[in-house]
Amino acid sequence: MAANKKIEFSEETLALCHKLIKRYPEGKHKSALIPILHLAQAEFDGWLSPEVMEYVASILKIQAIEAFEVASFYSMFNLKPVGKCHLEICRTSSCWLMGAEDVVRHLEKRLGIKEGETTPDGMFTIKTVECLGSCGTAPMMQVGADYYENLTLEKVDQLLDRMKASGKRKSYTDVAETRPL
């Protein structure tokens, strides 16, 4: 994020924040913290900088440390910049049984980075994560809001090509691809 860019939600997001706050009884607005942090992460380049957390805290009129405590507790919040496509590969039991390690090794080879690292062009970050509730369709990975399941190495290659071609950031909040039922 450019240092001089002012941290402020778009009008649309700000309106959404105020709508969220109304879901809770009077004085219990802190409940909106996690949903608003999600919005902030999506709007401010996929991570929560100290300035962004301070901004979120100011919307909810809470101490900045309260936002920091919460943001650092949950694994979906990034406190450091990540690639536009955050490849989160499940590594727990069923996914491991079905070959998640092969997927990770393949990604590492293909992208030339290790787990936890970001490609120099800022496009991809590889991260292994714990069970995402997709055990019956293992192995799988989540990128933004999308679940990619029953992965094969060929499928992974196709996905990477598609993401690279689009060049767009994928965040948790844009549920773009509708899943066929």
Binding site: Q63, I65, F68, F73
Partner: peptide, 22 residues
């Protein structure tokens, strides 16, 4: 009043911290 320190992170790596060294 105005707490500036608290517990951050989770699990084994939880730590007491001030908000960005306040």
């Amino acid at each position: 009043d105005g707490r500036v320190h608290g517990v951050i992170n989770r699990g084994e790596v939880s730590e007491i911290s001030t908000y960005i060294q306040n």
